[in-house]
Amino acid sequence: MTSREVLGRVALYALLLAITLLVCFPLIWAFFTSMKPKDEIFLWPPTLWPSTWTLENYRALLVGREAYFQAGAGTETPPPSAFFLQWFTNSVIVTVSTTLISTIVSTLAAYSLTRFRFPGQRAVPYLALVGYMVPSIIFVFPMFLVMADLRLTDTLLSLILGYVCITLPFSLWLMWAFFRSVPIEIEEAALVDGASRLRVFWEIVLPSAWPGIVAAAIFTLIVSWNDYLFGRVFINTMENLPLTVGVMHFFDGTHVDWGLMMASSVLMTVPMAILFMLLQRHLVAGFGAGAVKG
């Protein structure tokens, strides 16, 4: 490599590093703030690096409920930090359930749209995409009335059904575009050799469509994990709140517990960031593969 090429590559990496630090700076600031004692958080001028490191905020979130009841304060209303693990568990249950349902249904529906013939077949994917383009706030109140009639309000099932309704249309359209790029001749050859339709779907189609399935699953996972609107409308009790709604209880009027807020932000963001980095290759392949029809 020539000196010009080396300098160009160094400049490129420096630029990418600067952009990465700029994008990640809110999370970096949240992490260092969560490691500060409460009196240091409000120092002026503010500092990024803590002068005193503490895990008190994380301890309050992760073992706060046990410590609260062990202290004999069970007759009083527990502080919001005592519900953090319950909120985290609720979000995991809702996110995993929504992802499984939406991915399975969209995969089967997209396969039927690309392999079978029936009236209105071509209109279904585009109608689904139009449904996704409608803002979710338009659906939330009619869906709340439906959940009330079904007596599902204030339950995790209502959140799961609501998130499936807003993620399924785009997942269906994404999987439909991807299945169109999978050559049908491979399936026909397997059928001629005596394989059943189910075996062809399980052993040939699904492995070929794996990047698209992962892309649809990650999209559903991110939407259901980060959503605030449905949880705010559908859930009323502290024990059933999802994480995104529960952490808002750290705002008490004009007082904000910034230590707990920053610690909860880190615990909410880091698992999703790690998962996204591990599956990023499949996500890019899934979004790109459906653009080319084989």
Rank of each mutant, 00 (worst) to 15 (best):
T220V: 05
V23K: 02
V63T: 15
I274Q: 12
A30V: 02
M147L: 04
V124P: 04
N236C: 04
L243Y: 01
W202C: 12
V256A: 08
T52R: 01
R4E: 13
F219C: 07
S106E: 07
A109D: 03
P142V: 06
E187W: 02
A109F: 06
L61I: 04
S136W: 09
Q86W: 08
G8W: 15
W49C: 05
F32L: 09
F118G: 01
V130P: 03
F116P: 03
P50N: 04
P26Y: 03
G290W: 02
I274S: 10
T269E: 00
L221K: 08
A82M: 06
Y163P: 00
S171P: 00
F139S: 15
L100K: 01
R59V: 12
I104P: 01
I186A: 11
V6E: 06
L229T: 14
L15K: 07
P183L: 04
V140T: 10
Y13M: 10
N57V: 07
G131V: 02
F141E: 11
Q280I: 02
R197P: 08
W225F: 09
Q280E: 12
N226W: 02
L267M: 12
I41V: 13
P26S: 00
I222L: 14
M277T: 15
Y132W: 10
L108T: 14
V284Y: 08
R9A: 10
D257P: 00
G74A: 15
L278M: 12
